[in-house]
């Protein structure tokens, strides 16, 4: 039996407080973004100023944890300065890596900051070895965050094909149903997209209406869902809404559900993945602490050959539902 490689736990932080929570809960890496449209969680009141990043990096490094800066939207033509500055500041503040998605920005970073470690964001949706090699060979990308479209078996195949490039996969949190970075549903409805604005189904366009018998959630005037009394509600993310198609009302794309791979950790670790990523920079520090602790325990148990602890993350999952998503072929 080959020896298992201990995966890094890469944890989200939308604020300095969440970064502290993540580090204290056992994160190996924390990923963050600047407070602007250079990252794909450009949400109201969230993210880091330069000063906060500097302090966050110091705190994380004191605890032996790394800080990765996501600059994973696609720079606007004619105005790339904001993105270039974000890369330069990450390098200056000694971030351990930047997570990029745009080819032009990767080229810029590789040229101007040759010592800065580059990770490929999930938003680049590099779903096969040829794509990954392209980013590794042209821009020196060291790690790729795989899109949430592959099965565990496909991931293992990819891993073998692209070594020594590292892979990182999502193990928990909000699940993109579409190939990441290749979805314009949000801008179609709201004018704001993950790729251009760093938001999906933005809060500025969300309205909840409490009516007799339940809640209606709307996005830019489109009804995305209706929830009866007591039914678990969900944020009106477009792809998690209820729609009518073929004469039938259903969660056509995906149920309001969260990815949870705790039970699959042994399998994922065997697949030779370098890092496990937890989604949720927009969630509070209570979420960060709970999920990071759970996965810390899980990973440590597998590595020590102990049985998986029974951890219930029901309460913090969307709609109270969980899925193993694309990691199992039946999801497709």
């Amino acid at each position: 039996m080959t020896e298992l490689v201990r995966p890094e736990l890469v944890c989200p932080a939308g604020t300095p407080a969440a970064l502290k929570s993540a580090v204290e809960a056992g994160a190996d890496c924390v990923y963050v973004g600047f407070r602007d449209e250079t990252n794909a969680r450009n949400f109201p009141g969230l993210n880091f100023s330069r000063k906060e990043l500097e302090e966050g990096i110091a705190l994380a490094h004191d605890h032996g944890a790394k800080v990765l800066v996501a600059i994973n939207t696609f720079p606007r033509a004619g105005r790339p300065d904001l993105w270039h500055q974000a890369v330069a500041d990450s390098a200056r503040l000694k971030a351990d890596a930047v997570i990029l998605a745009d080819i032009g920005l990767l080229a810029h970073a590789a040229h101007h900051h040759p010592d800065l470690r580059l990770h490929l964001s999930v938003q680049a949706a590099a779903s096969n070895p040829d794509s990954i090699r392209f980013y590794a060979e042209r821009f020196g990308v060291k790690r790729v965050v795989l899109p949430r479209v592959l099965t565990v078996q496909e991931i293992a195949t990819v891993n073998a094909a692209i070594a020594p490039v590292e892979t990182e996969v999502f193990v928990f949190g909000g699940l993109c149903v579409m190939a990441e970075g290749r979805c314009a549903l949000s801008s179609y409805a709201t004018g704001q997209s993950p790729n251009m604005n760093g938001v999906c189904s933005p809060a500025s366009h969300v309205r909840y209406e409490e009516r007799a018998g339940g809640i209606t959630s709307q996005l830019a005037g489109f009804t995305i869902n209706k929830f009866g009394e007591g039914e678990p509600a969900g944020y009106p993310t477009l792809c998690k809404g209820r729609f009518i198609a073929n004469g039938k009302t259903s969660y056509l794309f995906e149920e309001p559900t969260s990815l949870n791979t705790l039970a699959m950790l042994p399998e994922l670790i065997k697949a030779g993945i370098t890092a496990f990523k937890i989604e949720g920079r927009q969630r509070g520090r209570a979420y960060v602490a709970a999920v990071v602790q759970a996965f810390r325990q899980g990973v440590d148990a597998v590595m020590a050959g102990r049985p998986m602890p029974d951890i219930d993350l029901d309460r913090i999952t969307e709609g109270g539902r969980q899925t193993t998503g694309a990691y199992e072929r039946t999801w497709r």
Binding site: L150, A179, C239, L252, F253, A326, W331
Partner: peptide, 15 residues
């Protein structure tokens, strides 16, 4: 307009 691509088939899912 092509807006998104997925590993999952929604046509199949709708049936």
């Amino acid at each position: 307009l092509p807006l998104a691509i997925s590993a999952r088939c929604y046509h199949a899912r709708s049936r």
